Amino acid sequence: MQDKVIITCALTGAGDTVGKSEHVPVTPEQIAADAVAAANAGAAVVHIHVRNIETGQGSREVALYREVVRLIRESGVDVVVNLTAGMGGDLVIDQEDPLKPVDGTDLVNAQDRLPHVEELLPDICTLDCGSLNFGEGSQLYISTPDMLRAGSKRIQELGVKPELEIFDTGQLWFATKMIEEGLIDAPPLFQLCMGIPYGAPANPELLQTMVNMLPEGAQWASFAIGRNQLPWVAHSALLGGHVRVGLEDNLYLAKGVKATNAQLVERAVSVVEGLGGTIAEPDDARRILNLKGHTGA
């Protein structure tokens, strides 16, 4: 187990979950308030998506990110800010005409996934390290090697730490190649994402295999979605990783009991401490991950 275990809280995501729980934050004010509550509960890092205020759907609108980050930074609560840079990779295929534009497609190049990162200079931003059949139907997440090299180079220029989102073993292979090419500064930070159809299954033996594939000196965390989220806190911590919880990945504290982000963090704290671990403070996370310490533009 790590000397200090970093807890990340993934606050809202971009999935169609708003109608499934009243606790999923939508507005910048709600997202920022959940970030503060999660930090007070023990999260050193908050992972942030934003949502269209009217529809509740995921958004790439820079003004929404700007407002969330402003509210967090003005709250006086110390927390490491991790902004998603994965939006803009969605491709929906028409079965009769695969080149026909289909509602739900939101596909842009690597640079156009980063304007909020360029403006706000968060401590961390995500980099989804490969393409994926995303669930049932005909939706793909697109992140090609050329896109990834361009995106990682720009993130490196900005001095932001990329969190390498790994959904399957081939993506881990390619992320390691980018490290070898000098596109990722030390120590690399991996997030092993388990149970998302159809990537890596939430299988503890597979998690061990992926951990064995990590390059020397890497920092890493792992999470699993749904009912596996809280057990996965233990799996990840015991294998020497950091952990992630939050409403992006799971809506429940127990069967039939809907959770808040703060409650999920509190439960993660109790699991880690129950295993004999110590919870990292934000300054611990900055030291462990060698963050640049941006305070914003």
Rank of each mutant, 00 (worst) to 15 (best):
M213H: 12
L289P: 07
L172M: 12
H23A: 12
A110E: 11
Y198I: 00
V211S: 03
G58F: 07
S152P: 00
N82M: 07
Q191R: 01
V18I: 13
L239S: 08
D34H: 04
E266Y: 04
T12R: 00
V233M: 09
P201R: 05
Q30E: 15
A297V: 15
G182V: 13
I196C: 00
M213C: 12
Q111D: 12
A175Q: 08
S138A: 14
I166W: 05
P101L: 02
S143L: 06
R287G: 00
M178H: 02
L238T: 15
R286E: 05
D3V: 01
G182Q: 09
V81S: 03
G89L: 02
A221G: 13
T8V: 14
F190T: 08
I288T: 08
N40G: 12
Q139D: 01
G182H: 08
P187S: 05
T105A: 06
D106C: 06
D284E: 08
G76N: 09
S75L: 06
A39M: 06
A254E: 14
L264E: 13
F167H: 12
L192Q: 03
V233L: 09
A44G: 08
Q191G: 02
L238E: 14
L289W: 14
G276D: 05
Q139H: 11
D284F: 09
Y252T: 13
E180D: 15
V69M: 03
D16A: 14
T8W: 01
R60F: 00
L120E: 13
N250A: 15
L71N: 02
I142P: 03
G58V: 09
G76I: 11
D3Q: 13
L206K: 06
C193I: 15
G276Y: 07
C193P: 00
A175K: 04
L214P: 03
N82H: 14
H49K: 01
G104P: 04
E216N: 11
S59W: 03
L99V: 11
P282W: 08
I6E: 06
A254Q: 10
V69N: 04
N261W: 06
G246F: 05
N133Y: 13
A14D: 13
L148A: 03
R60M: 11
T176S: 14
H294L: 11
G256W: 10
N133S: 13
A10S: 15
